[in-house]
């Protein structure tokens, strides 16, 4: 629909209403993050102030404890150095990168097959994937624990990576299936007429044109692995924890010792990669969400 024709006739009160509404929503969406980032550079009596939240803005106690400087990096030092958050960050990097690469490899092959098959069983595999997609992750975790203890593979990163890849497959298959449907069949079929096998056609013709869909799906695989709490918190030993379970596990111990600011700093640190992701891949995220909706 054309904006011009509609906006020309929009009465002033409606424009004001829309503007106010959007401003309220943006504040609601963004303020918690801005506030927490700002507060993470203060000391605890400022950020969690019983007197007045102006303390958090001016940093009254931070100045008192910190030679007049109203910002402090103590929370970050405590989290990253004292409590070894860097180890968790490293584990998160290993897990998310491996999960994304393996999911995409399995998913592109499977999604391509599903998009080109057109037989009954391909349809049923998709429906099964939908049911699997709906399973709460923690119900699956309660099925893993006992066998993993028995096989003695509990607590290490590779186990979690494989589990996250599997949990991720239903979604990846759906996304890539609908993406491959949008690539014309003639493309790979004409390659096969020219004498390519199905796999050669996939490698020479499909792989070069599939990257936009793969990047979008990869973003969501990354997010799933990065945001997971249920699986990683149950399947990793405390030495191998990734960032999210690490934050939750030192939330309890930190609160007793009066070091809540360590947790605040860790939370802000774990938010930064997501921020950057949205900043650079906003278009792909939006198109990925809508592609699933429009076609799925």
């Amino acid at each position: 629909m054309s904006d011009a024709t509609l906006s020309q006739k929009r009465p002033l009160p409606l424009t004001i209403l829309i503007t106010v509404f959007i401003v309220i929503w943006v504040v609601l969406a963004a303020f918690p993050f801005i506030w927490t980032v700002w507060g993470s550079f203060k000391v605890e009596p400022d950020f969690f102030s019983r007197q007045s939240w102006w303390n958090a803005i001016f940093g009254t106690y931070t100045q008192a404890q910190n030679d007049g400087n109203s910002f402090t990096g103590d929370g970050y030092y405590g989290a990253w150095v004292t409590r070894e958050f860097w180890r968790a960050a490293g584990n998160t990097a290993i897990v998310t990168v491996s999960v994304t690469i393996i999911s995409l490899t399995l998913g592109t092959l499977g999604g391509y097959a599903l998009a080109r098959s057109g037989r009954g069983y391909a349809f049923w595999i998709l429906i099964l994937a939908l049911v699997f997609r709906a399973m709460p992750h923690i119900t699956l975790v309660s099925g893993y624990l006992l066998p993993f203890f028995q096989l003695n593979i509990w607590g290490v990163l590779p186990t979690s990576i494989i589990v996250l890849v599997a949990i991720n497959q239903p979604f990846t298959l759906w996304m890539l299936h609908s993406f491959f449907l949008s690539i014309p069949k003639d493309l790979d079929e004409s390659a096969m007429v020219d004498g390519c096998s199905r796999f050669e056609a996939f490698r020479r013709v499909i792989i070069p044109v599939m990257w936009p869909g793969v990047v979008t799906t990869g973003l969501f695989s990354f997010l799933l692995a990065y945001n997971d709490f249920a699986t990683t918190s149950m399947l990793l030993s405390s030495d191998n924890q990734t960032m999210v379970p690490k934050i939750s596990s030192f939330l309890g111990s930190v609160q007793e010792q009066g070091n809540v600011m360590f947790a605040v700093a860790a939370v802000v640190s774990a938010t930064v990669p997501l921020f950057i992701l949205v900043l650079f891949f906003q278009r792909q995220i939006v198109s990925g969400l809508t592609a699933g909706a429009v076609k799925g």
Partner: peptide, 13 residues
């Protein structure tokens, strides 16, 4: 084509 993905889903879901 679909076997690796299917094995992962059967084993872990």
């Amino acid at each position: 084509f679909i076997l690796p993905s299917l094995i992962a889903m059967v084993l872990f879901i």
